[in-house]
Simulated scan of single mutants.
Amino acid sequence: MTHAGGVQAHLPTLLGEVAGAPPYLAGLIEAKAAVEHGPAVGADGARVGQDFQALHAVLDAAQAGSALPDGATAHAALDDFVVRHRPPHR
Rank of each mutant, 00 (worst) to 15 (best):
H3W: 13
V18R: 04
L59T: 13
G65F: 01
H37E: 00
A46D: 06
L25F: 12
A19P: 05
V18E: 01
D51Y: 05
A40D: 00
A31C: 01
D44M: 04
A62M: 07
R84E: 11
T73F: 06
G38S: 01
R90A: 11
V41D: 03
A9S: 10
H85P: 06
A77G: 08
R47I: 03
A40M: 00
L68H: 12
M1I: 12
D70C: 07
T73N: 03
L78T: 15
H3A: 13
L68S: 12
R90C: 02
A74K: 07
L59H: 11
S66E: 11
A46M: 06
A31T: 02
A64M: 04
Q50L: 12
V7H: 08
A54P: 01
H85R: 10
D70Q: 09
E30Y: 00
V82Y: 08
H75D: 14
V35C: 00
H89V: 10
Q63K: 15
G65A: 11
G49Q: 08
V82T: 13
G49C: 05
G42K: 04
A61E: 10
H85S: 11
T13C: 08
Q53G: 07
P12S: 10
I29P: 05
V82R: 12
L68P: 07
P22C: 12
G27K: 01
A21I: 12
R47Q: 14
G20A: 06
L11E: 08
P12V: 12
A57R: 12
D79W: 06
L28M: 06
F52D: 03
E17K: 11
H75N: 10
A33W: 00
H10D: 13
H75M: 13
V83F: 05
R86H: 07
G6W: 13
A40Y: 02
P22N: 08
G71Y: 07
L55Y: 06
A61F: 02
H3F: 15
Q53S: 08
L14G: 10
A43N: 01
V83C: 06
M1P: 08
A9Q: 04
P39S: 02
L68A: 15
L15A: 15
P87E: 09
T13G: 13
A46Y: 04
A46H: 07
G27A: 01
A33V: 00
T2Q: 13
L25E: 02
F52P: 01
F52R: 14
A62K: 04
Y24C: 05
A57N: 07
P69N: 09
A9T: 11
H85G: 10
V41E: 08
A43F: 05
P22R: 12
